[in-house]
Simulated assay, not measured.
Amino acid sequence: MIGLVWNAPVRLMEISVRFELYVEGLRALGMPCLTICPTGTESGYPYPTRAFGSERELVDPNFWRLSGCRAAVFITWHRMTELMAAARLAGLRVLSITDSDGHVSPRLHQWSTFRYMTFLQPTFRGKLGATKHWLDRAIFRASEEHRALVANTAAADITTFGGLGPADEFRHLLRRIGAGELAERVNWLPYPVPHSFCSRELSTGRLDRIIAIGRWNSPQKNAALLASTVRQLSNRGSRSRIVIIGQGAKERFSVLARQVRNVQVLGVQPRERIRDLMAESRTLLLSSRWEGSPIVANEMLALGGTVVGTPIPSISGLVAETAYGRVSSYHNPHSLAAAVSKESDAWDRGERNPQAIAAYWRPLVSPVGVAQRLLALLSLPIVHRA
C-alpha cells in the first residue's frame, strides 16, 4: 500500500493537485492507497483516509510502521524534512512532490524569488515588507536555506518536479551549492489529468481559436500581460478567436472584450465545458509570471492542442520549440504575441497534428501513466497492468 500524504489545512476536495487521480491510477495497477491528511480535510473525499490531529504524529516512525504502507508520497514544497526522515527510518520508500519550479534560492534565483515574494502582496507596504524579507534571505540566510534544501532532498529517496524544466533547474542548483551527488535523486513526475481528458475523441479539425484559463485575480497569472498580448495580436491583424475562462475573467477582461471583437470572456465554467472548449481549440495561452507545473497545460496536450507561454522553466521545459508549442523570448506583450503568431502559422501550415500530440502525451499524463512512473521511481512492482 502507498500512503499519499497531505499536510495543509485545506480540504482534499479543494486542492488543485487532485489526489483522487493518483488513487485511480494506482488502483488500476493493483496498488492500494491510503490518503493521510489533517483531521477535517477528508470531508467529501471518496477514498480511504487516515486523519491525524497534529504534525507531531508524523514525526514518529511508529506512525509509519503502523500505517501498513510500503511507501509514502508527500507534497512538500521543499519542506517536511522531519516527516520524510521518519517515514524512511520506519522502512518506507519516500517520494517528494515539490510543487516547485526549481527557482527557490533568493541568492541564485534573485529575480524569480523577488518577483514571487513581492507580487503576492496587494499593497505598497506589503511589497516593501516582502522586499526587506527577500533581502534578508538573499544576503544573510541563503547559506542556511541551501543547507535546508540539501537536507530536504536527502530525506527523500526521490524528489520530483511536475516538469522537465524545473527538475533540470533544481539539479543545477544542487550542483552549484555543492550537493551534486543528490542530483540523481531528482526526477520528473507529471501531474495527472482526469481520464475524460485522455479518452475524449479528438476533433478532426480545429477551430482557429486560442484559449486562456486561469484565476485572473491572482498576480501569478498576469492578467495585464494577457490583455496587452491580445491587443498586440489584434494590431497584427490576427483573426484567431480568443476565449478567456476562469475566476475574475469578467472583471479583468470585459473592457478588452468590448474593444477587441475576437475576444470572448466566459468566466467560471463547468469542467466538462472547459474540456470541450479546449478540445476544439488550437492553442492554450499561458501568461503566467511563475508556475510550478501548469496542470492545464497537461490537459491541453492530452487533448491534442499546443501550448504557448512565457519563458519560465515549467513551460519552456515542456514545449519550447517542439511540435507541442513554443515560449516567448521575454515577459512582454510583443514577444508573447510574436510566439502566438508563429504558433498560429504552424497550425495554418499543417505542422500541428492533434492525433500525434495526444498519442504522445496521454500515456504520460493519464492517471495510469503517472502511476506507472511513480511506481517505477519508487522501485515498486506493478501488480497488474490496466
Rank of each mutant, 00 (worst) to 15 (best):
I139N: 07
S112Q: 12
H133M: 12
V370K: 14
L284H: 01
V5N: 00
W6C: 03
T310Y: 10
M84R: 03
D60C: 07
A346C: 12
P363K: 12
F19Y: 14
G165H: 02
R273M: 14
R185Y: 09
F74E: 04
R349M: 13
Q372P: 06
S288H: 13
P32K: 08
R79M: 12
G369D: 00
P38C: 04
M13G: 09
N62I: 03
Q264I: 14
T310S: 07
S341F: 11
G246D: 12
W347T: 11
L374W: 15
N235G: 03
L266K: 05
F140L: 10
E55V: 04
N332H: 14
I274W: 02
L12K: 08
G53K: 10
A376V: 10
A346D: 15
F253T: 09
L374K: 14
R70A: 06
V383F: 05
L164I: 12
G53I: 13
S203M: 10
L174P: 00
L120K: 09
A302K: 05
L149T: 06
A320T: 13
V265G: 03
R362M: 05
G180A: 08
L374D: 02
S112G: 06
T322V: 08
L380N: 05
N332P: 00
G102S: 07
M278H: 01
T118A: 14
Y47L: 08
W361R: 12
W216N: 00
T160G: 13
